[in-house]
Structures are given as C-alpha cells and as structure tokens.
Design a protein around this nucleic acid. Structure first.
Lengths: 205, 205
DNA sequence: TCCGCAATCAAACGATCGTTTGAATAGTAG
DNA sequence: CTACTATTCAAACGATCGTTTGATTGCGGA
C-alpha cells in the first residue's frame, strides 16, 4: 500500500487483500498493520474493532459498486429491446470494472465471495440490511423478462446465477490463467462466458 | 456426536460440522474436542496436527463420494441415449445422497465449498492430487456430448458449473428453506434445478 | 507562543491458539 | 500376575490473538 495514503486508507487497502487471501479469521490485525506500516493500535483507534473494520471494507466498495449497478440497470430499463443479457451485464460489468480500475478491486471480489462462504450471521445481516434492495431491484427486472417462470422457480435460478457469478469472478475455479493473458483480460473473458451461460440457464425450459 | 463412536470418529464428525460452520481457521481444536467430549491432546495423538485432521475430514468423505460418482458415470456411459442431464446427475446425485444419508454429510458439502473459497495452496494441492482425476473423467464425458464446443470454451463452462454446484449445494444462497420443507427435500429440489440450469448453460450457443 | 486535540506509538493486558509432555489408565498377550 | 502397548488425561509450553492503556508526537487556531 502506497505510503502517501492516509493511515485509515492504508489499513483498508491492506485488510482487503489479506482478507481475500487468508479469510477474516485467518488474517490477523498484526499482519494487516505490519503490511500497512502503521501501528497495531491504529485499527482500534480508527475503526473500533476488527469486526467494524471488516464491515468498513465492504462498505467502501459496495456503496460505489451498487450505485453503478443500479445506474446500469436503469439505463437498460429505458431500452425497449432489452434482453436478459443486458440485465446480466448490468449486474456483472460494474463488478468487472471495479476489479480492474481500482488497486484492490480484484481482491475485493474475492472478499465478497468469502463473505458468501462465511455463514456468520452478523455479516450476512449487515450485507442483507445494507445492500439487499439492490438484489431485489434486479430480481424484479429479471421477473419482467421471464414472465413465464413461476416466482419460486425464478428465485432458484437467480440464486444459482449469483453463486456462479460469485465463484467465477472470484477466480476460485481450477482454470489457470495463461501467463500471456493479463488478469484484466482473463476477467473480461470470465464475465462474457458468465453472461452467456447464465442467460441460457435462465431461459431453460 | 454419539458417545458410542470411537474417539477418532467423534473428532472427525465434530470437526466436519465446525469447519463447515466457522471455517478452518475459525474453528479451534479446543472447540472441536470439547464438542466431541474427548481430550484436547487426542487430535494430535490421532492425526498429528490440525492440518492433517483437515485432510482426513476430506479423505473420509471424498473417497466414497468419488467412487459413487465414477460408478454413476460408468453407468451412464453404457447408455446409448445418454444426455447432458445424465452426466450432470452422475456428478450431483452422489453428493446429494451422501448429504442425506450420513449424519454429517450435509455439513461436508459446506466444508467442500469452503475449501473452494480458501486459496490455501497446500489444501488445493492435496485435493487436486488426490481427486483431480475424477474431474478429468467427467470433463471428457462432457466433451463427448458437446463436440461442437472448443476445448477452452468447454473448460470455462465446466468451471462455472462447478462453482454454481458448489455454491448451491452448500446452501450459501439467500433462498430460505421453508419450514415445512425438510432439508432433504430442499436439497433434492436444489439438485434438480441445478441440473436443468447447468444443462441449458452448457448447451448455450 | 501556547493550548488543545487528533493521531501515533511502545508496551502490556488477558484470552486463546496449536502443540507437547509425562503421568495415569485401560486392555491384551505371554 | 506380569510386561507391554495403546490410549486418555491434566497441565503446561511458547506463540499469537484482539484490545486497551498511557505517554508522546505534531499540527492548527486562539
């Protein structure tokens, strides 16, 4: 993390990468503060606790990410010829772009996937309370495009899409990125495959 | 864990559920041994280390699971009219059945999903070395059924399927199981939706 | 210039971590 | 019964955990 950033920002940046790499329990505050070159006590001074630091790592990126997602969804909604692929793209592309243009964005997608794997009730509640409405917006958009699907059937499929998306974007799979392909390029391909696959899955008879 | 089981088995059973619930770093050996009602030192006596205990948790279930998967795949291969759905079912159903008939089987599916999320190199190596050949068997079966797909295209899609499968079976999604639906029933529905979704995704143009 | 406040620091807190030790306790073969 | 092995046990090891303390620093406004 660049030393010209503030203490607060350096902690957030380093915490993001270490949480992605070792998990929330696996990454200690001592590792974080050492890598960020700040004092150990700085975490509790600026954030209050490790728990609050974790929430702040999410808040920092999700506020921006979901703003972009809703904007993209709104743009699609005005398009009369919109397709499933467009709505899927509105959900996936902002995550893709954030993971490419911000320094720790790639790490954050992994952190998000870890949050999914954690069954921690407090964390799920926090994410659901603060960002659940975004998922609901997209669900109604999908419902309009798939009117023949029963409601519960649609929810099942969206759940599967969310899982596939999370895992694929987080690069958890076994597909090894070729050395001659940049991480951005890899992620771009990942998103394209995802959109096509998910669209076909959602349209399944 | 039933007290009539051996110390070794009690540790494995409890470790499975606690790893599923709190992660490998999050579940301590003290929690495990306390819940299993065995002495703390028993873990290192019977398994050598926490790391080895984790590997044994996988080995115990994966040996059986993959035997069933390969048997189901072989049964499908003799069927001349086999479909994508049959191969997908050969992969998914054994996991479904194991999660239903063994006491901690449901927990194990979650442990498997956690292993996915962990980027731990040792764990990935262990799983790849010991069980990678199963995935390769299924990959060639899929390749035969989807001859029009380029090899890299196929691998992309299988990667997505694996992610969706892992996620859905581990019950990570937001879909809340209705109280009047048993966990078995929920899982059965989950598998059916998965097979249909994945088949459509794999067949996408 | 001096005050006041926000920030940083070294040090220590008690708790918990994985692991090891050595003695106590079965259970079995000779 | 004795000797031996396998297992269980309480206790402690050093390391590391998240958090707190109290002193020290540095800077902007009166």
């Amino acid at each position: 993390m660049q030393p010209n950033f503030s203490t607060r920002e350096r902690i957030l940046g380093v915490a993001e990468t270490l949480f992605a790499r070792h998990g929330f329990a696996g990454a200690s505050l001592r590792q974080v503060t050492a890598a960020a070159k700040v004092n150990l006590a700085a975490v509790n001074y600026h954030f209050g606790s490790k728990e609050s630091l974790i929430e702040e790592v999410f808040r920092r990126r999700l506020d921006e990410l979901n703003r972009h997602r809703l904007a993209a969804l709104a743009a699609v909604a005005t398009n009369p010829g919109r397709q499933l692929e467009d709505v899927l793209d509105a959900f996936i592309r902002p995550a893709l772009e954030q993971s490419m243009d911000s320094a720790g964005g790639a790490a954050f997608v992994r952190v998000l996937a870890r949050a999914y794997a954690e069954h921690d009730e407090r964390l799920r509640r926090f994410l659901s309370d603060n960002y659940g409405y975004v998922l609901r917006e997209f669900a109604t958009a999908f419902a309009r495009l798939l009117p023949h699907l029963r409601k519960d059937e649609l929810y099942w499929r969206l759940d599967i899409v969310a899982g596939a998306l999370t895992y694929a974007m987080a690069d958890f799979g076994m597909i090894k990125r070729k050395d001659d392909v940049s991480e951005q390029n890899h992620r771009e391909q990942s998103a394209q495959h995802l959109v096509r696959f998910a669209a076909a899955g959602l349209r399944a008879p």
